[in-house]
Amino acid sequence: MTIRVLIADDQALVRDGFGMILDAQPDIEVVGEASDGREAIELARELRPDVVLMDIRMPHVDGIEATRRLGAEGAASPRILMLTTFDGDDYVYEAMKAGASGFLLKDVRRDELVSAVRVIAGGDALLAPALTRRLIEDFVRRPRPGGGAGEGLGELTEREREVVRLVARGLSNAEIAASLVVSEATVKTHVARILSKLGLRDRVQVVVAAYESGFVRPGEDA
Score class of each variant (00 low, 15 high):
51 V>M: 02
86 F>W: 12
9 D>R: 00
163 V>N: 00
106 K>C: 08
121 A>S: 02
127 L>G: 01
37 G>E: 06
13 L>I: 15
156 L>I: 07
164 V>N: 06
190 H>E: 15
64 I>V: 10
77 S>Q: 04
20 M>R: 14
73 E>H: 05
44 A>M: 01
191 V>W: 13
24 A>C: 12
153 L>Y: 07
16 D>G: 12
131 L>A: 09
66 A>H: 02
128 A>D: 13
114 V>S: 05
101 S>N: 11
130 A>P: 07
68 R>A: 09
26 P>G: 01
92 V>T: 13
3 I>G: 10
143 P>C: 08
180 L>S: 01
5 V>M: 05
156 L>K: 06
28 I>A: 00
165 R>S: 10
77 S>D: 03
5 V>G: 04
5 V>L: 03
188 K>H: 15
15 R>E: 03
10 D>Y: 08
38 R>K: 14
137 E>I: 09
191 V>P: 13
125 A>D: 08
126 L>F: 07
20 M>S: 12
214 G>W: 04
219 G>A: 02
196 S>A: 15
98 A>N: 01
87 D>M: 06
198 L>Q: 04
131 L>F: 07
115 S>A: 15
221 D>N: 13
73 E>M: 11
152 G>A: 15
161 R>M: 13
123 G>Q: 06
211 Y>T: 01
84 T>C: 05
216 V>Q: 08
111 D>W: 06
113 L>K: 07
144 R>P: 04
80 I>V: 14
222 A>I: 09
137 E>L: 08
211 Y>N: 02
107 D>Q: 10
60 H>K: 14
56 I>H: 09
92 V>Y: 03
194 I>F: 01
16 D>P: 09
183 S>L: 04
9 D>K: 01
1 M>W: 07
22 L>C: 08
79 R>S: 02
32 G>T: 05
85 T>K: 11
17 G>V: 10
125 A>I: 02
155 E>F: 12
202 D>K: 02
204 V>Y: 00
181 V>N: 13
